[in-house]
Structure formats: structure tokens, C-alpha cells
């Protein structure tokens, strides 16, 4: 057996390891060490046509809306997290989300946007803004299950899917930025699904409540998903697979 075999860990030791600040720090060091604001220094800025640049600005503005929602919500969730491991993990997520917001705003500046905050307000997708408002209401109401479901399952799965699709066709600089973000998102969506999954096993009566939350947010999510994919330019033929990842997560949790 290898000296370090993760599959040989006891369950508690595994959870202690992956939700620690130490794990997070070493993980992000692996893929961010050589980057500045998410990009590799010296990568030339690509030449873009005006329409392509404008589309990318709209897309990045909406990424900023999503990341701001996750930053505000995850910081609020630290307070109401039911245990130490969840609090520590969410503290690392807060920093991830802050970094995501920062790198996307920096990318907007790279593209010549002089007042990113103002531009984000102008271009924000109304459905995404409504989703953000609802998510923050769950946090304000101290509704842990609904907030984690909305943020770490719905929002993170949507972002993970859209970012991965986008980076296939993105310009080299945007692709570098997205690549680092996607690696962070793996932790976030995994935390959400596994935390909720454990709680639903222990308290199956919560499933009905989460199914209601899902019914309420599904339309907002799917419309936003469609519109963001339009702006990213994802082929229609590829969309069923992309939406399928969200539906698969919901199915694994028994919320269909």
C-alpha cells in the first residue's frame, strides 16, 4: 500500500482533511502559484472584434453577479453553519469567491471597462439578480438547507458547467482565468451536495422543503442558464448535456 492512500482513510479523517484550511491552501497553491489575477504573466491580450468583446463583457458582468452572490452568501453561511468543519470550509469558499470576483473584474478592466461596478449593474441578467436576492433571503432567514442548496448545488453547478463550456472557446487569457475558477468550483459543488446529502439521510423530512425550494428556483435557474449560454455562445446541441449535470445532482439528492 502507498504511504499516503486517500482511499484508506477513515471517513472522519477524510472529511477532516478535505475541509481543512491546510488542504485548501496546498490545493490552490498547486494551480495559482504562477498566476497573477488568474492569468499567466506575459500572455498577450488577444485581438477581438467589437461585437465579440462586447459579448464577453456582458458574460463577465454576469459572472460577477454570480460570484458576488456567492461571496455574500457564503460569508453569511459561516455564521449559521452547523459544525466546525462546515464553518472552516465555508471560510475557504469566501476567499475563493472573493478571488473569483476580483479576477473577473480585472478581466473587465483588461478589456477596457473603466467602471466595472457600473457596467455590472447595467448588464446584469434580471433573473440572476432575482436568484441572488432569494439566496440572500435564505441566508438572512438562517435557512441553512435552502441556502446551501441554492448556492452550493444550484449556483455552483450552473457556474461549473457554464465556465467549463466557456473555456473551450474562450480567448487564451479568459481561459486561464476560468481554468483556475473551475478548479475551485469542484470543491464548492461537492461540499454542497455531500453536506445536503448527509443531512437528508439523517433528516429525510427536509426533502420536501428542498423540493419546494427547487421548484421555486428552477425556472430562474434554467432561464438564466439558457441566457448565459446564449451570451457564451454554447451550441444548442450541447445544452442538454450541460443542464444534465444540474439535473443529475438533484436526482442523486432525491429531489426530483
Amino acid at each position: 500500500m502507498s504511504e499516503f492512500d486517500p482511499h484508506a482513510l477513515a471517513e472522519e479523517d477524510f472529511l477532516e482533511e478535505v475541509r481543512s484550511v491546510d488542504f485548501w491552501f496546498q490545493a490552490v497553491d498547486g494551480y495559482l502559484r504562477d498566476r497573477s489575477y488568474g492569468r499567466v504573466d506575459g500572455t498577450p491580450e488577444p485581438v477581438m472584434e467589437a461585437g465579440e468583446r462586447d459579448n464577453l463583457i456582458t458574460t463577465l458582468c454576469n459572472y460577477c453577479v454570480g460570484e458576488t452572490a456567492a461571496l455574500e452568501a457564503s460569508s453569511g453561511l459561516v455564521v449559521i453553519a452547523p459544525n466546525r468543519h462546515a464553518k472552516i470550509f465555508l471560510a475557504t469558499q469566501v476567499l475563493d469567491e472573493a478571488r473569483h470576483l476580483e479576477v473577473f473584474i480585472r478581466r473587465l478592466s483588461d478589456l477596457g471597462v473603466e467602471d466595472p461596478e457600473h457596467e455590472i449593474e447595467l448588464r446584469a441578467n434580471p433573473n440572476l439578480v432575482r436568484f441572488k436576492d432569494r439566496l440572500l433571503e435564505f441566508v438572512a432567514d438562517r435557512d441553512w438547507d435552502a441556502a446551501v442548496f441554492a448556492q452550493n448545488v444550484i449556483l455552483e453547478t450552473m457556474e461549473y458547467t457554464v465556465f467549463r463550456a466557456h473555456l473551450q472557446d474562450a480567448d487564451p487569457v479568459t481561459a486561464q482565468v476560468l481554468d483556475g475558477v473551475v478548479k475551485d468550483e469542484r470543491r464548492h459543488l461537492g461540499f454542497g451536495e455531500n453536506d445536503l446529502g448527509r443531512r437528508l439521510v439523517a433528516m429525510p423530512e427536509k426533502r420536501e422543503r428542498l423540493a419546494e425550494v427547487r421548484a421555486e428556483l428552477d425556472e430562474l435557474v434554467l432561464v438564466t442558464f439558457e441566457e448565459v449560454q446564449d451570451s457564451v455562445g454554447v451550441e444548442r446541441s450541447a445544452r442538454a448535456d450541460l443542464g444534465g449535470e444540474y439535473l443529475a445532482a438533484v436526482e442523486r439528492l432525491g429531489l426530483t
Binding site: 482511499h7 469542484r186 461537492g190
Partner: peptide
């Protein structure tokens, strides 16, 4: 992500995905 084991994988094996914290 592709999860790798030091053993040939068989039914009944327990594996951990550290990148997303899944068991």
C-alpha cells in the same frame, strides 16, 4: 475527475474523491 487506486477496482470498493470531497 478520474479517481485512481493502487488496486484494481472491484464492486464493494470505497473510494474518495478529494477534489470534490465525495465518498
Amino acid at each position: 475527475v478520474v479517481i485512481r487506486s493502487v488496486k484494481e477496482i472491484r464492486a464493494g470498493d470505497r473510494l474518495y474523491c478529494m477534489p470534490c470531497m465525495s465518498r
